[in-house]
Design a protein around this nucleic acid. Structure first.
Lengths: 211, 211
DNA sequence: CGTACTTTTGAATCGCATCAAATCTGGTGG
DNA sequence: CCACCAGATTTGATGCGATTCAAAAGTACG
């Protein structure tokens, strides 16, 4: 991780009050870097400009469970007022990440109601995304989960695979073998196209359940 | 639903600014009542004092998917600034529910930073709960999901079944048959006790993964 | 007393996890 | 430039566990 930019990403700049911009630090992170671990005390919030980060916890049997895979936006929003992290944050692809001190965020909120409102809006969007993920995980066939992901999270039915099919499989809560077979099967049936690191849903069944 | 109380539930009173208390309306709801449907415009926030409410959506095949089952607290927090509900809200047990006008909540936030902060804290807790639910749904055996629920959401390992095992099964994302068999099996093994509408985890394996 | 729903048990089937192994890939050092 | 290695990708075979379909027994309610 090396100091790179003083420039604050567009979306972040719109969210934060101007006074906080100077306190942001943006760096490049390598794949494999760890942002935080279970039990750490949150000091800064991490905003992903580009790349990929996963939140994960160790299951009882030592296997890792992916709570979330993010490619843009704040990671672990809920840690704003937490004493400790309840999951690990790991960088899974070369990323540009901006750090914002939590104490300064809190101070800004106390005096800037509009900022609080924007922050609440961000949390609301995140809540909806998570509810959709719960809905997705309650589907029991791999194909249903994948199509649900493409329909709800994709852009025009396209969705970036990101750092490999394995992490996508973890996000869907299935083994990578099952996902490989599912993708292959759907390609054969003409339901799916795979190109340039993207999965694209072909409009066979326009069953898109709009958000 | 009948007008009953002017009294605002304790927890709600602590969250809301005093000026909003008079605008709250608490009523009794019967089982089966619908708070809102997909597409409705959110006008009031619903706070459950007691009872049970589920958020659900219709799957592609017409089956209902339970996004959330709540027995206390606000329902659909994320709808504060939404133009439309993205799921149905249905009362599944006799309940006492308080309604708070959204426009008044928003007005209060604009002028009361402390209220915004408390609201953000509520959203943060909800986010963590949802992440735990995602973690739970990514377990593939019924028993693992049930134990995870009792460990993370239970009080001393006890968890109220609520309005029937069926709704609990829906919350866990499994069929009710599978849950019946799982409960029976765990009782036989001495892992679980079922009494007075509660499921209690017996301390065979203290594998509680603390929040 | 009858209706509607929940709870419970049974049997058959299907899809995914699991284990195993081969192939492909990018990156490193000789 | 090539040999080599670690990790990702892909394919195969097997078994388990949940779904599914079916039906009986229990329970609440008017």
């Amino acid at each position: 991780m090396s100091q790179l930019l003083t420039e604050v990403p567009q979306e972040l700049a719109e969210l934060l009050p101007a006074g906080l911009h100077a306190l942001c630090q943006t760096s490049a992170y390598k794949k494999g870097a760890r942002l935080f671990a279970v039990g750490d005390k949150p000091v800064v919030m991490f905003f992903i400009g580009s790349g990929e980060v996963v939140l994960e916890r160790q299951g009882i049997h030592g296997e890792s469970i992916v709570l979330q895979r993010s490619r843009h936006g704040f990671v672990g929003e809920a840690s704003l007022r937490s004493a400790r992290y309840h999951c690990d944050g790991r960088v899974t692809a070369p990323s540009e990440i901006t750090r914002v001190p939590i104490r300064d965020i809190q101070a800004a909120m106390a005096s800037d109601p509009a900022f609080s409102t924007r922050w609440i809006g961000m949390l609301n969007r995140e809540l909806k995304r998570l509810r959709l993920q719960c809905e997705r995980l309650s589907l029991n066939r791999v194909q249903d989960r994948l199509m649900h992901l493409l329909e709800t999270e994709g852009q025009q039915g396209s969705y970036p695979i990101g750092s490999g099919v394995k992490s996508l499989a973890a996000e869907l809560g299935v083994t990578h073998e099952a996902l490989y077979r599912c993708v292959l099967d759907m390609e054969k049936k003409g339901l799916l196209l795979r190109e340039r690191g993207q999965l694209k849903l072909l409009t066979g069944a326009p069953g898109a359940c709009g958000q």
